[in-house]
Amino acid sequence: MSRKRLGQLEAEILALLAGAEEYLSTAQLREQLEGSPAYTTVNTVLFRLLDKKMVERAQRGRGYVYRLLVDEADLAAGRMFDHLRVASDPSDVLNQFVHGLNPAEERALRALLDRPEE
């Protein structure tokens, strides 16, 4: 089993919660994560997300279940902006990003860029 950085695991947990239609338990999240992270590791990430007020939890039986409180698109865009702000060459970062897009993502980006400004 390869170990993931906590930031990567946090992003994966946020994505799972964003796609969920209901609250999810630590065990349910762990089952859907690749690499079988330890239950305690998933719990640690959930506690950190709870402290950051990115998720909320509710009691279900003797355990807790979690759901996303923030908008996933806002989170991803914020991370992208953070990376661009600290890059020595933001144009190069954008170039690498665009060249890494698949055709569907490229079409979506092109459509957004071609829209008239509001």
Score class of each variant (00 low, 15 high):
Arg62Trp: 03
Arg62Leu: 10
Arg60Val: 14
Arg85Met: 12
Ala73Pro: 00
Leu101Ala: 03
Phe47Met: 08
Gly78Ile: 08
Asp74Thr: 14
Ala15Gln: 13
Val93Phe: 03
Ala73Val: 12
Leu33Asp: 10
Arg115Ala: 14
Ala58Arg: 15
Ala20Pro: 10
Met54Leu: 09
Arg3Tyr: 11
Gly78Pro: 04
Asp82Glu: 15
His99Asn: 14
Gln28Glu: 15
Val86Phe: 06
His83Ser: 04
Met1Val: 12
Ala27Asn: 04
Asn102Gly: 12
Ser91Val: 10
Arg3Thr: 13
Gly61Ala: 11
Tyr64His: 03
Val86Asp: 06
Ala58Tyr: 01
Ser88Tyr: 02
Glu31Tyr: 09
His99Ser: 05
Lys52Leu: 13
Val65Glu: 08
Arg30Ile: 04
Gly7His: 07
Leu69Asp: 06
Gly19Glu: 13
Ser36Val: 02
Ala20Ser: 15
Gly35Ala: 02
Phe81Met: 14
Ala20Leu: 10
Ser91Arg: 15
Asp51Ser: 02
Arg3Gly: 12
Val45Gly: 06
Ser36Gln: 10
Gln96Asn: 11
Glu106His: 10
Val55Pro: 00
Ser2Glu: 15
Ala104Pro: 00
Tyr23Trp: 05
Lys52Met: 08
Phe81Ser: 09
Gly63Leu: 09
Leu94Arg: 06
Gln8Ile: 10
Val98Asn: 08
Ser88Cys: 01
Leu69Glu: 14
Gln32Cys: 08
Val93Thr: 05
Leu33Gln: 13
Leu46Tyr: 02
Pro37Asn: 10
Gly61His: 14
Arg67Ala: 13
Tyr64Val: 00
Asp51Leu: 07
Glu31Asn: 13
Val55Ala: 00
Arg107Trp: 05
Gln8His: 04
Leu113Lys: 09
Ile13Trp: 01
Thr41Pro: 00
Pro103Lys: 02
Leu24Gln: 15
Asp71His: 04
Glu72Met: 13
Gly78Tyr: 09
Arg3Asp: 13
Glu21Ile: 04
Val93Cys: 00
Ala38Lys: 08
Asp74Cys: 04
Ile13Asp: 02
Asp71Phe: 04
Arg48Leu: 00
Asp82Gly: 08
Asp71Gly: 01
Ala104Gly: 08
Phe81Tyr: 09
Leu75Asn: 01
Val98Met: 14
Glu31Trp: 06
Leu68His: 05
Leu112Trp: 08
Leu33Ala: 05
Glu34Lys: 11
Tyr66Ser: 12
Val65Ala: 09
Glu105Val: 01
Glu31Gly: 07
Ser88Asn: 05
Leu16Pro: 03
Glu22Ser: 15
Ala38Asp: 12
Glu56Asp: 11
Val98Arg: 15
Gln8Leu: 07
Met54Ala: 05
Thr44Tyr: 09
Ser88Phe: 03
Glu10Gly: 09
Asp114Tyr: 09
Gly100Asn: 14
Ile13Gln: 01
Ile13Lys: 02
Ala111Trp: 03
Leu50Cys: 05
Ala58His: 04
